[in-house]
């Protein structure tokens, strides 16, 4: 059997992914061992785990250097790419929301709205769908800051519990899209290593259902 390579997003998603793999009976001890290595084997299944940043998961899978990837829908929506987005893994759940300063009326004006976001493509697509012109400004750090200092009228960001928003005087007023972790597959790998990939997917599905 061909050894599969799976790129997994570091951080929360990696923890959840490893929990999933362990439920499937995979030995993740080498991945969990605190080393600086970035490519780590699953010892009892023909698969290597490649640790990478979210957007890079898409890049590695699109270019076919990793057969599969685990990445949030938020990253897929923002960056796109050509791959199969096969399974919703059900963890890493949160949502994209439009949040505005408490008590402000985002839509109640004809004036041009300014929206700050770490996800300018998602934000643009959302308002384009509504047929609404907004100015989108990309922010790299804490987006909550933008409306507080007067840069924007609202933000589009990932919301998990809403605590950070609340503490900064912001209220989520709309859900832009739900988000969760996805299993993505390189299009050529899917066709060339169908048996291996379906075996893995069947094992995943057996656990997440």
């Amino acid at each position: 059997m061909n050894r599969l390579k799976i790129a997994v997003t570091k951080g929360r998603l990696l923890e959840d992914s490893l929990d999933l793999f362990e439920q499937m009976g995979f030995d993740c001890s080498e991945v969990r061992a605190d080393t600086r290595k970035l490519i780590l084997p699953i010892s009892n299944y023909p698969m290597d785990v490649v640790l990478s940043k979210a957007a890079d998961v898409l890049t590695y899978v699109s270019h076919g250097v990793c057969d599969l990837g685990i990445v949030g829908k938020d990253t897929i929506m923002e960056h796109g790419g050509s791959f199969y987005e096969m399974l919703d893994l059900g963890f890493g759940k949160c949502r994209f929301a439009l949040a505005v300063p408490d008590g402000s009326d985002f839509y109640g004006t004809y004036q041009n709205r300014v929206v700050a976001s770490k996800y300018p493509n998602v934000t643009k697509a959302y308002f384009a769908e509504k047929g609404m012109d907004v100015s989108v400004i990309k922010i790299e750090g804490s987006v909550e800051l933008a409306p507080l200092v007067g840069l924007s009228n609202g933000i589009v960001d990932i919301v998990q519990t809403g605590t950070t928003l609340k503490e900064n005087g912001l209220t989520p007023i709309e859900t832009v899209a739900p988000v969760s972790a996805r299993l993505i597959v390189n299009t050529a790998s899917m066709k060339l290593h169908q048996a291996e990939i379906f075996d893995l997917m069947d094992r995943i599905e057996a656990v997440i259902k």
Partner: peptide, 9 residues
């Protein structure tokens, strides 16, 4: 057409 060694068709 898919070939071993190519990342897409």
């Amino acid at each position: 057409g898919y070939s071993e060694g190519a990342a897409s068709n």
